[in-house]
């Protein structure tokens, strides 16, 4: 009986200590969606039970190692008992109840995080080796970054062009594979304005690690301005900055776009050969083409290579580049990327 009391006290004390040390819980990254709330709550609950069970098993084990160790010279056996049906039933039924309860909670959270809303913003997300693109059918625009207004539920329609990819923004807490030949869905209500990234979570080949795209949660007014800019209908408010962007801004924009649109997953900046030709010193370089001719990478060629990549393939490379950059990039953005390419010597 003495041992029972000791071990109960040990387990309770250690559990309390660990629960105290992990409070408030900081298991997860920043929560940026409404769905993150219930998910984090459930995970926190899981962790509390995990901490208790962890301490229970290890506490008893530790206690046994210390209290029931064999004394030197003792060759006898331990106490003889080999089962206790009531105890066995107890530790079958109790965990059964706990896991059923957690499944029930999990179901509730699942309902919460998948529920539809009346005023959803539909975005068609297309994944391919190794980039993302985003279409907004309500507005007739497309982009290489996912911009979402804060506070409005987004209904993502997920498509894949080649192999399975997976849409994951850790700050949103939800994940959904994109499957070739099928459409999948995900609902997210962004709440925290900020810049995040969608990270492909399903191994999809060579460029998998670099298959990221920016995800921006914008205040609704800024989102509207962004939409108008994509449509070309945006009018600067009077008294606003009249000057166009400077040369340096354009190069910086180009660099940002190259990151955002997955270009550097396939085109290295250090001269090493990846899936596509390296961008190091690309401007003005003379390249042999697949058809035997050769070409100098001037502005016109680079523009063609971005909009219609299959037309002039550099020898030694396969035609793998997505052909839709003409749709997802504005002409001014293509200019910016070319300006950026010129700087890579």
């Amino acid at each position: 009986m003495k041992h029972f009391i000791n071990v109960i006290l040990l387990v309770l004390a250690l559990t309390a200590l660990l629960l105290f040390l992990t409070d408030p819980p900081a298991w997860m990254p920043l929560a940026a969606s409404a769905e993150a709330g219930p998910v984090d709550w459930l995970f926190g609950l899981h962790m509390d039970v995990i901490i208790f069970l962890y301490v229970l098993v290890n506490g008893v084990l530790l206690y046994a190692v210390v209290a029931f160790r064999r004394k030197p010279g003792d060759t006898g056996d331990g106490a003889y008992f080999h089962s206790n049906t009531r105890l066995e039933i107890l530790w079958t039924v109790l965990p059964l109840a706990v896991v059923l309860y957690f499944s029930y909670l999990g179901l509730g959270v699942l309902r919460q995080t998948t529920a539809a809303a009346a005023d959803e913003l539909e975005v068609i997300v297309t994944a391919r080796q190794w980039s993302w693109s985003f279409e907004y059918p309500d507005y007739g625009i497309a982009a290489g970054e996912l911009n979402l207004p804060a506070g409005r539920k987004a209904h993502l329609v997920l498509r894949a062009e080649d192999v399975i990819h997976s849409f994951w923004v850790p700050e949103f807490r939800l994940k959904q594979d994109t499957v070739p030949g099928q459409e999948k869905y995900l609902r997210i209500t962004p709440t925290e304005v900020g810049a995040y990234k969608v990270r492909c979570a399903e191994l999809c080949g060579t460029g998998h690690a670099a298959m990221l795209a920016p995800v921006n949660v914008l205040p609704p007014a800024e989102f509207d301005i962004w939409v108008q800019k994509r449509l070309g209908t945006y009018v600067e408010p009077e008294g606003g900055a009249g000057e166009g962007p400077g040369e340096e801004d354009i190069v910086a924009l180009g660099q940002q776009l190259a990151q955002a649109n997955g270009c550097i997953a396939c085109h290295s900046l250090d001269g090493s050969k990846l899936v596509g030709p390296s961008w190091k010193g690309v401007f003005g370089r003379t390249e042999a083409l697949e058809d035997g001719s050769s070409i100098t990478a001037d502005e016109a060629y680079l523009r063609t290579a971005i909009i219609d990549p299959g037309s002039q393939i550099v020898a030694g490379f396969a035609n793998l580049m997505p052909a839709n950059y003409g749709d997802t990039l504005l002409p001014s953005e293509i200019d910016a990327i070319i300006a950026y390419l010129k700087t890579l010597e």
């Binding site: 997860m28 219930p38 998910v39 459930l42 995970f43 899981h46 962790m47 039970v49 995990i50 896991v99 957690f102 499944s103 909670l105 999990g106 179901l107 959270v109 699942l110 995080t113 850790p170 807490r173 939800l174 994940k175 959904q176």
Partner: peptide, 12 residues
């Protein structure tokens, strides 16, 4: 295991 078995936490 259980946080992975519970769908909603598993999606993260």
């Amino acid at each position: 295991g259980p946080p992975l078995a519970t769908i909603s936490t598993d999606l993260h």
